[in-house]
Amino acid sequence: MSATTSARSARLGLRATPEQETVLRRAAEVAHKSLTDFVLDAACRAAEQTLLDQRLFMVSGSQYQALLEMMDRPESENPGLTDLFSRRPAWAKE
């Protein structure tokens, strides 16, 4: 996710230790990017990964097969859930 300088209108502020700033500046130089571009690119990659981690679950073939088998089994009675769903939720108006 990369944005051109002219398209940027939102301002973000952050504080870093001198050591963090040094590392970020060195890395930006090595990547031939401005500090802003480097930090934004890295932050956006991390943000996208965090969001994907909430939607994508990686499992082995055997784990996936076990899940399919569990989902194909007929449902069984669950007294705890029956009790839970029979109660009025705390947020419901009386």
Score class of each variant (00 low, 15 high):
V23H: 02
L51S: 00
E94P: 15
R25M: 03
V30T: 09
T50H: 14
E75T: 01
Q49W: 01
T17Q: 05
M1T: 05
T50F: 10
G61V: 14
T4I: 10
G80N: 15
E19W: 07
T5P: 02
L67C: 04
E69Y: 02
A10D: 13
M1N: 10
A66W: 06
L12G: 08
T50I: 09
R45L: 14
T5K: 13
E19Y: 05
M58Q: 12
V30K: 10
L51G: 03
G61D: 15
R15D: 02
H32V: 00
T36A: 13
F38K: 01
L12V: 15
L84R: 14
E77R: 07
Q54D: 07
L40S: 07
T36H: 14
L56H: 10
R15Y: 01
S34E: 04
M71C: 11
L84Y: 15
A43M: 07
A90S: 14
D72E: 14
A3E: 13
A16M: 12
A47L: 14
R73F: 01
V30Y: 05
F38C: 06
D41Q: 08
A43C: 15
S9K: 11
R87W: 09
K93L: 10
F85Y: 11
E29R: 11
R15Q: 02
S60E: 05
C44P: 04
A90Y: 02
A27N: 01
L35C: 00
E19N: 09
L40A: 10
L24M: 00
L84W: 10
M70P: 01
R88A: 12
C44D: 12
A10L: 14
M1V: 09
V39L: 11
L14C: 11
E29Y: 04
L68G: 06
L84T: 14
A10W: 00
D53R: 13
K93N: 15
R8S: 02
A10I: 15
F38R: 09
L84G: 10
N78K: 02
D83I: 09
L81D: 06
L52T: 06
F85L: 11
E21A: 05
R15P: 03
R25L: 01
E77N: 00
P79T: 07
A7D: 13
L51D: 12
R45M: 07
